[in-house]
Design a protein around this nucleic acid. Structure first.
Lengths: 146, 146
DNA sequence: GGATAATAGTTGAATATTCAACTATTATCC
DNA sequence: GGATAATAGTTGAATATTCAACTATTATCC
């Protein structure tokens, strides 16, 4: 009855994902950051790679360009990022982290680090490694389905 | 560097979840079902437990009641379900699958079964078991975080 | 039995996602 | 060099989610 096991596995992945996102969001709400999980995903990438264009960010995050545009609008509205026209190709927008956006980094990272640290206490490193490797494989298989 | 491994693990879980949902949605689109992954999640539960009330369904699906109400509106609009007042407590709505809703079952199940079957070919049963057990544990840990 | 508290489900606002259509810009073709 | 094709990013419509506020109903209290 392997099919049923695969189904249960996928449903459990969805469940963990929902739990994790809800927990992070709850933490963000407690900190009164007025930011969502998705916004922070974008910020994290821009902290790592300031000056990237939207298309590249969309590719890195595996996020639809229109969906990304919407999130970026909200980040720009909060003065955490700014968009700048790429002089060498006016179709491109370069994304820059503002000073406020940089300040946020030093607030967010300790909080998210704490969540990961708490999780790591009860997780066994070789289990993490195994799970990670299997999930990489699973993602690959899913993407190869017709 | 366990914290980084936990982070990568969670990001991979989110990635797998996104890939899977996108693949199922793509399949639904190919079949011209005019239904979303979320709608089908609800239908699957109602096929299993016709006559359940909204609150119980919300609990079973771990889905917010207002979000569920929205999805149910769309299913009712498509004449796949109907809502019926619970005579013993007028606050409750009983959810019933229509004939059209039942017909959908015999269309959807073969399709989703095929996806699970394809996935199971390349997955090793003991790996599935291990991953499932670890994800159950992970979900528990996440939900216990303060 | 009436007042108050709790509850099921609904709805609105804001967020995010997907797809389609669009505009301005660049690349390619002849 | 101009016409056509391709591209980056935007926006709208519909879907879904979250939270707050609400209404009608039921439970509890005195």
């Amino acid at each position: 009855m392997e099919i049923e096991k695969v189904r249960l596995l996928l449903m459990q992945i969805i469940k963990v994902q929902n739990s994790f996102k809800a927990k992070v969001q709850s933490k963000l709400n407690t900190m009164k950051l007025d930011l969502t999980f998705e916004m922070l995903q974008v910020m994290v990438k821009l902290w790592q790679e300031d000056g990237i264009n939207q298309q590249e960010l969309s590719r890195r995050l595996l996020k639809d360009k229109s969906s990304l545009s919407y999130v970026l609008n909200n980040l720009e509205k909060r003065n955490l990022i700014s968009r700048k026209e790429d002089k060498s190709d006016k179709r491109n927008k370069i994304l820059l982290v503002t000073d406020s956006g940089l300040e946020l980094k030093s607030i967010f990272y300790p909080a998210i680090r704490e969540i990961y640290k708490e999780l790591s206490i009860d997780l066994n490193e070789s289990d993490i490694d195994n799970m990670y490797a299997e999930l990489i494989k699973l993602d690959d298989i899913i993407n190869k389905l017709k």
